[in-house]
């Protein structure tokens, strides 16, 4: 019994220590402003591997989710004779919730796990240590560009997701199911507010992008440098990012849309 309590206490301390390391790590990575001539090409390369390479999965998922929303929305709304409201439903769902959340989950699975594995492997093969011994801080050289790339890529991906989703929804409801196109867009435009819906959605994605990338690079940097350690760190990245995104989504939704 005492052993159990002691183990619980140790676990608590470990968690707090990990959070502390993660904070220290973030500070170290974001502290120095790099020389633009050095930092910019590094950032571009990371934006490419984190953002551009995730684009395909985001576009395909967005298209299908939009189409499903169109189908489901039409079926339910046509019972009340208000199938014209399907545009409003698709747009609000995507812009406020599904765009940020699904993109973040896809991002954690596609880009986050890749980041963790890459950095973990760099640690295991002593590339990070050797960089340090060459007088180059790996936090600034390796980690910082990846963090920034994640912050920047995630909102872009989410916005593209929403647009593709709305287009997919239009495809299904207007072109296939025959909802009047004017009503589709008109209802959407009268109910979606740029500041309250679109910008709040973008704020969400910025937060999610920050959290997902932070978790991913930290798990890679903090992993046990063996093959088992890297695989467990990759799993942790996906699990922790997904949980953090869903939990934060509730908090952010309550703050942004909760009062009406």
């Amino acid at each position: 019994m005492m052993d159990r309590i002691a183990a619980l206490g140790r676990l608590g301390f470990n968690v707090v220590a990990t959070v502390g390391r993660a904070g220290y790590f973030l500070g170290g990575a974001l502290a120095g402003v790099p020389k633009p001539a050095v930092g910019f090409p590094l950032l571009v390369r990371q934006l490419y591997s984190v953002g551009v390479l995730s684009l395909a999965i985001v576009v395909v998922s967005g298209l299908f989710i939009g189409m499903v929303l169109g189908l489901q929305g039409y079926t339910i709304l046509s019972d009340y004779g208000s199938e014209a409201a399907v545009g409003q439903m698709i747009a609000l769902t995507l812009v406020r919730e599904l765009g940020p959340v699904v993109t973040a989950l896809l991002f954690a699975g596609r880009a986050g796990s890749a980041l963790t594995a890459e950095i973990g492997l760099m640690k295991a093969t002593e590339q990070l240590s050797s960089m340090e011994m060459m007088g180059v801080d790996p936090l600034r050289r390796v980690i910082a560009p990846r963090l920034w790339a994640g912050f920047i890529a995630m909102p872009i991906l989410a916005v593209i997701f929403s647009v593709v989703g709305i287009w997919g929804g239009m495809l299904v409801s207007v072109d296939w199911l025959g909802v009047f196109e004017g009503a589709f867009w008109g209802n959407m435009q009268s109910s979606v507010s740029f500041v309250d819906d679109v910008l709040n959605g973008v704020v969400k994605t910025v937060v999610f992008g920050f959290v997902c990338t932070w978790i991913a690079v930290f798990q890679g940097y903090d992993c046990v440098p063996t093959s088992a350690g890297i695989s467990s760190a990759t799993t942790k990245t996906v699990v922790y990012s997904s949980l953090a995104v869903l939990g934060l989504d509730f908090v952010l939704t309550a703050v942004m849309f909760g009062d009406f």
């Binding site: 812009v95 909102p155 991906l157 916005v159 929403s162 647009v163 679109v198 973008v202």
Partner: peptide
């Protein structure tokens, strides 16, 4: 593409 998507959301979706 990201910027264009924001424009679409602003003009076409939120009117």
């Amino acid at each position: 593409a990201g910027l264009a998507a924001v424009l679409v959301l602003a003009l076409q979706v939120s009117g």
